[in-house]
Amino acid sequence: MSQSDKINTPQTVTKTTGRVIRPVAVSRARQNSFARRTFFGFTLLPVFLILIVTIALLVRSWPILNAYPLSDLLFGDVWKPTDGQFGFRPFILGTFWVTVVGVVLSVPPCLLASIYLAEYAHARLRSIAKPVLDLLAAIPPVVYGVWGLLAIVPFVDKVLAPLSDRWLGSVSIFAVNQPTGFGILAAGLVLAVMIAPLIISVMYEIFSTVPNDLRHASLAVGATQWQTIRNIVLPQVAPGILAAIVLGASRALGETIAVLMVVGNIPQIPTSIFDSAYPLPALIANNYGEMMSIPLYDAALLSAALVLLVVILIFNILSIIILQRMMRQKWAS
């Protein structure tokens, strides 16, 4: 590509036309360079958009960042905007728990399913799996929320909570303190299904970066397929697997509506996966735009959005850089 770039810049076009200036050629060259500049402007848009969103949120949350030390905001336990107390800790912990539970539940089956699709499945199964994953990815968050409300919350309430109460009740993170079904586990289960298509398709792509020659080399000495995967394929793709997990986590971090519908929305510091929680996105969605008369309230909510954005940006950039690098190696080889 870059080669052709050099060959066909507008300069060369004018040069080849020589002294006899042909107006058509010149205008075409001009059209080309104009188009290039315009297109380039468009292309900068995504880069700037990230900056603009970040800066806008930073500017709007500046009043509260100025008024309180960052540590008070991030680690403060009390959320009482009317009293001027803006502690994000319950919300940050809520986000953290919901995300961790979602990722922990999602990753093992996703990893196994993607290994199966990449290493064992026949072409036919693959061609069925792809549209199924696409459908799963296309279902809107609010529908996941409805599903969570109708299926997952009762399931947690009627099945998982009693079971856990019976067998694991003495372990604090499995204790059932608020038996409603709404809470971290329900949100985690919904998230686990929501992020599954993304994780599976990224992992599947990653597995396909391993050259078949390596698999064949291992199979040729009589290794079983699982031995080949375990010893050869998995070590090769480990960074990509990690990146896929981080990408899934960042998707879970920002999920709003579906989580909000099943998580209970009680601002407390959770101690068990059966507790209700109040993640940051739910906080923003439930409160933003209302009670704007309370001083700093609006800035507080936007700083919550900023915190969320920064964490997600870091997660995203790291994982995408790793994934892009692995994909490039595939194209290169």
């Binding site: 020659d213 390596l214 080399a217 040729a220 000495v221 079983t224």
Partner: peptide, 19 residues
């Protein structure tokens, strides 16, 4: 099949050292 491949070794077209 793994026993077959143990008994019948293969030298591939391109050398494929394991990583």
């Amino acid at each position: 099949v793994t026993e077959v491949r143990k008994v019948v070794g293969l030298l591939a077209q391109r050398p494929s050292p394991l990583p």
